[in-house]
Computed example of a mutant assay.
Amino acid sequence: MKRVLIEEELNRLLQPHHSFLKRSDVRVFTAGSSDEILRIHRKELVDLILTPVDLPGTGFEQIAAVIRGDVLTRAVRLVLVAPNSRSAIEACSRCKPDAVVLRPLFPPVLLARAQQLLNLDWRENYRVMLSVSVNSTTGNDAFFCRSRDISATGLLIETDKKLALGSRLTCSFSLPGGVRIQATGEVVRSVAETGAGIHEYGVKFLQLSPGEKEYLENFIDTVALERAS
């Protein structure tokens, strides 16, 4: 479990974005002042702090000095958001941050830097080994195949049908919990012929409904967390 401490206003700005902060293996704490950041970090020993350098309360340079000076709290990753001015940048450098993001703030840049510092894999790279039956159609031609490998961006299918790269499929399958997923996909990779005339293909999802996408992402997060525990 990764623990992330975010200043309240910054958290409100980041929450609308789909990011690692919504993963089940990430716990988010919020703080309204620099003093509260120190108090929460001392209690929770978070892995990452995201905060503007110009916070209410005790100057953040002083708070950062306390954090970096304590053997129990110093290992935290620190990302500061600051105005694009020489004085602000100099103030940030005295806080010994791991990264500084200047205003105007572009949230995806901040989120990507934070995720990198946490050494979290991108969810799209998680793959779940799961045996499911897939009913697929190419044009008017329906056929049956199986999948053992599902990610947030596609799946690996096994079938005795020969498919050309670029073929468009409509795939329908069920995951644990009874939720049925129907997705349009494209064959982007011919993996191998496994014997007995069975072919393996990599299929990239082209379209998922918002509800199906959310369920699939949550399912993959849950499996990834179970693997890590």
Rank of each mutant, 00 (worst) to 15 (best):
N11H: 15
R12H: 13
L13H: 02
L13M: 14
L14A: 08
L14T: 02
Q15T: 12
H17E: 12
H17W: 15
H17R: 13
F20H: 01
F20K: 07
L21T: 05
L21V: 08
K22L: 13
S24V: 14
S24C: 13
S24N: 13
D25A: 06
D25W: 11
V28E: 06
T30D: 06
A31H: 00
G32E: 11
S33R: 10
S33A: 04
S34V: 07
S34F: 03
D35A: 04
D35Q: 09
E36Q: 15
E36L: 03
I37Y: 11
I40G: 02
I40L: 15
R42I: 00
R42V: 01
K43Y: 13
K43G: 02
E44Y: 05
V46M: 00
V46A: 15
L48I: 06
L48M: 08
L50R: 05
T51H: 03
T51V: 00
P52G: 04
P52Y: 12
V53F: 04
D54C: 04
D54E: 12
D54G: 06
G57W: 02
G57K: 07
G59A: 14
F60K: 05
Q62M: 11
Q62V: 09
I63A: 11
A64L: 03
A64K: 03
A64S: 15
A65T: 14
A65E: 14
V66S: 12
V66M: 10
I67D: 00
R68V: 00
G69Q: 08
G69V: 06
G69I: 11
V71R: 15
V71Y: 06
L72Y: 10
L72V: 01
T73I: 07
T73C: 10
R74V: 05
V76R: 03
V76W: 02
R77L: 01
L78P: 08
L80C: 04
N84G: 09
N84H: 13
R86H: 08
S87T: 14
I89T: 03
I89C: 11
E90M: 09
E90H: 10
C92N: 09
S93R: 15
K96Y: 10
V100E: 03
V101A: 08
V101M: 01
R103Y: 01
P104L: 01
L105I: 07
F106L: 13
F106P: 00
F106W: 08
P107R: 08
P107F: 07
P108M: 03
V109H: 09
V109E: 13
V109C: 02
V109Q: 13
L110E: 07
A112I: 00
A114T: 04
A114V: 08
Q115K: 06
Q115N: 13
L117A: 09
L118V: 11
N119M: 00
L120E: 12
D121K: 15
Y126C: 07
Y126I: 10
